[in-house]
Amino acid sequence: MSNRGRDTRTARSRWSLFGPIVAVGTALAVIPLWLDHSGVLMGVAVLGLAFACYAIGFNVIFGSTGQLFLCVGALAGIGGYGGAILADTVGLPVVVSILLATLVSCVTGGLLSLIAVYRSLGVIFTGIITLIFTLTFDALLLGLGSLTGGENGFLIKAGADTFLRKRIPPYYVMLALVVAFLLLHGLLRRSHVGWAWRALRDDELAAELAGIDVARYRVYGALVGAAMLGLAGATYAFTEGRVSPTTFGFAQVDVVVLVMLAFGGIGTLLGPVLGAATFTIVDEILIEFGQLRLVIYGALVLLLFLFLRRGVIPTARDFVAKRRLSQASAAPD
């Protein structure tokens, strides 16, 4: 390596970041060519991308900074419901509503993280506090029925006549979010923030001793992740035209996102997208099984965590590295 110029090296490293993201974006961009005949399948694909966004946001919070936020659905729901209420009930423009709702979600995530950090709650207690937040959010959705539409949900009138409700454009809007989130996460991982995240993930005490403000970098992670969740939730709500408690429910979002991320590989850049794509397809295949789908889902979760605990991407990476190593030792030079 030492005889290579600095320019080639930065070019190489830039390519190693942008390359996979561009490849994933391109691969996903051609999918509508096969599905555009079916509104239902396009809807499934858009939902799949929304889940990819949620999984990336959760990955920033849990994968990069080790905070188990069991309120992915609730933070996305703040975006979705917030956007819907601001646009329809208050009457703000759609874009302003989405941005404001994203801001609320971002601040909420930051506050939850602040609480967890300053009470020095471990992984499990952070999980339980955020789970309580999720339950509170659900109870409020039902309790404030006059504002949220209660169990029936909220029909969004704003934006109904724009491209957001056409068949194909929502797909590319959500895809743009996926690519933007991946880029942001990838760039953050390469910045000083990423170094701090890696240090505090590996050994929190050592990171603290090395002079890293662990609390601050945790809160950064929560702010970025929660903003991603809020933005994705709000955008998805406007493409769907309706939000209901199950759109952002714990069983429907949090559990699924956790499984997707664990499958792809917690803390990897592309793991969330791989997991979201895989489970969107699996879910579509299993749809004819009705209630039995949950049984198969449960069995998959069991198999996944019994035999593939670290996720597909890290396992595959290890496999490749091992093969390279054995080839190198078999034929030196």
Binding site: V255, L292, L294, V295, I296, G298, A299, V301, L302, F305
Partner: peptide, 13 residues
Amino acid sequence: LLTLGFAFIVDGF
């Protein structure tokens, strides 16, 4: 995570 998977199987069945 493992007991959650088991819970899904029971609930679904």
